[in-house]
């Protein structure tokens, strides 16, 4: 029997669109450098879509890409005014997406995406804050904590395409397994003994958690498990786990959250 060696899947990813309004290499370099320096953690190694609103020559374009790469941004695709540049784009190993369907152009003004935008700003702010207080535990951003001013990134419309949380409205029964791939998992009922919840993000249980909950299964150390009543068989964050006996502490059968702090799982009451 031959096994299939690949699978094709659709995916969405968050990227930054860099709109080129004007291009003077020196000015561009200094401005971009300043922008990256304002939130290095956020920008470093982030993927970039170049949107050419000005016609560039092949040389200019090559220089532009080189500058971006020097600042550790990762240009991956180009759109806009690319007509003359196709061979260069190809040579540089970039994708020409000028023909592709995109929907980002209106996002700044569309009210429907207001929430997304707010989230985008939060993400940016959160990242920046982490950058400043290195070593600090990454706190879940609440309105008061988020520092909007720092990278209220005037131009760069960071539009994360958020994968919606998987929401389960019924009890998760013994023997059932629920996996929220690439997102948070929300269960509005109880999770029975012998049931298993897995998520790449956080896990929220608005009922009694009697089964197993594994958050951040792909290694996200910041993932957390929240539950209304903690009675779990096993809780795991990014591979670190604790069993029933350890769980059975002071938060037993109470609202609690579990998170990872320097390789140790901590259980904390939710008041």
């Amino acid at each position: 029997m031959t096994e299939t060696c690949f699978r094709m899947k659709g995916t969405t990813l968050t990227s930054i669109v860099l709109e080129i309004i004007d291009f003077d290499p020196d000015v561009f370099e200094s401005q971009l450098e300043a922008k990256v320096a304002s939130a290095p953690q956020f920008f470093t190694r982030s993927s970039l879509i170049i949107h050419l609103q000005k016609t560039l020559s092949a040389t200019e374009f090559e220089l532009l890409i080189a500058l971006c790469r020097r600042l550790q941004l990762q240009p991956m695709a180009v759109k806009g005014d690319v007509a003359e540049l196709r061979p260069v784009i190809n040579d540089l190993g970039l994708a020409d997406i000028s023909q592709s369907k995109t929907s980002d152009s209106d996002i700044n003004t569309s009210t429907a995406d207001a929430a997304n935008q707010a989230e985008a700003r939060q993400t940016g702010a959160k990242q920046a804050e982490v950058g400043k207080n290195t070593g600090n535990h990454n706190k879940t951003p609440s309105a008061s904590q988020v520092n909007y001013s720092a990278p209220e990134v005037e131009a760069t419309p960071v539009v994360p395409v958020l994968k919606p949380a998987k929401v389960i409205m019924r009890p998760v029964r013994s023997g059932q397994q629920v996996y929220a791939e690439g997102s948070d998992l929300v269960v509005t009922a109880s999770v029975s003994e012998g049931a298993e919840l897995l998520a790449d993000g956080n896990i929220h249980v608005y009922g009694t958690l009697r089964g197993r909950a594994l958050a951040g299964v792909k290694g996200n150390n910041n993932a957390r498990v929240f539950c209304q009543s903690l009675d779990a068989e096993l809780v795991s964050i990014a591979g670190q786990f604790i069993m029933h006996d350890t769980v059975k502490g002071e938060c037993w059968k109470k609202p609690a959250q579990i998170y990872l702090e320097e390789d140790t799982l901590r259980i904390e009451a939710l008041v």
Binding site: R173, S174, G175, Q176, G194
Partner: peptide, 13 residues
């Protein structure tokens, strides 16, 4: 009780 829970899961799937 656990087995009933299991069968409820099967009913739902």
């Amino acid at each position: 009780v656990r087995d009933s829970d299991r069968i409820l899961g099967i009913l739902q799937s």
